[in-house]
């Protein structure tokens, strides 16, 4: 990736952003004028996500914090040249992922290429959950369908923890994609750009990741009920 990253706006996020843009223009002007309050609020607004995203590339919170600081240096240095063609947020995170990747070393940089090589198609739902050829009219249909989780189960703090642990244990590419998409709530465009993935590859990783997190939840919530 080139340094500094360009602020080319991808075609998809041009919708309904006019207001956001005005707010950002105001933010930018304040930052350029050296408004500390605005800078601090921006730092605080993004710090949680920035640390978590940095942690996808570097091993410890301490290093992640350094990466976040480095990223802000890059942001401040690029501020004059930033043309607002991408959103401020995606520009900031592009700088962050560049910093995190160069800090994370070779392993982090080579990740997009190895992302799909990991684990060749083991089934995402246990094949014994479906009917086999012994029932010709219903082959490939549920034999043991999923059972709805209760509202209490879904609201329990412990259930979210199960999901979190399941995500942490995913192979790297899957973990990165589900972290950006479902934990951080990024769009698929933003995610593809940050991780250097094609739309299709991103979808494959997301598919595997979500299916596995679901399977872990199902198993553990069932065990809990007994």
């Amino acid at each position: 990736m080139l340094w500094p990253p360009s602020d080319r706006r991808s075609t998809v996020d041009s919708t309904a952003d006019a207001q956001l843009h005005e707010e950002e223009a105001g933010l930018l002007a304040s930052l350029r004028a050296g408004d500390e309050k605005v800078f601090l609020s921006l730092v605080r607004r993004h710090q949680t996500s920035m640390i978590r995203v940095a942690l996808l590339y570097v091993p410890t919170k301490a290093v992640a914090e350094e990466v976040v600081q480095e990223a802000w240096v890059g942001v401040l240095q690029g501020l004059e040249k930033f043309e607002g063609r991408s959103s401020l947020k995606s520009w900031i995170f592009r700088i962050l992922t560049n910093c995190a990747m160069s800090r994370g070393g070779r392993e982090a940089r080579s990740k997009p290429f190895s992302a799909l090589a990991e684990e060749p198609g083991e089934p995402l739902v246990d094949p014994s959950r479906f009917r086999g050829p012994e029932s010709p009219h219903w082959e490939g249909h549920w034999a043991a369908p999923p059972q709805r989780w209760t509202d209490d189960q879904l609201a329990a703090h412990q259930t979210a923890q199960i999901a979190r642990r399941a995500i942490e244990e995913l192979p790297r590419g899957q973990r990165d994609v589900i972290t950006l998409r479902d934990v951080e709530g990024w769009s698929s465009d933003e995610t593809c750009e940050a991780l250097g993935l094609t739309e299709a590859n991103q979808r494959v990783l997301l598919h595997r990741a979500r299916a596995k997190v679901r399977a872990v939840l199902e198993q553990q919530l069932k065990a809990e009920k007994r």
Partner: peptide, 27 residues
């Protein structure tokens, strides 16, 4: 297909739970 309705629902639940599972990192 009730089984598939439930499967789709559980995938949506898992997505929501992932969003609820954020560790709150602060500087």
């Amino acid at each position: 297909c009730v089984g598939c309705i439930e499967y789709l629902q559980q995938i949506r639940d898992a997505m929501k739970l992932a969003g609820a599972a954020k560790p709150a990192e602060v500087l």
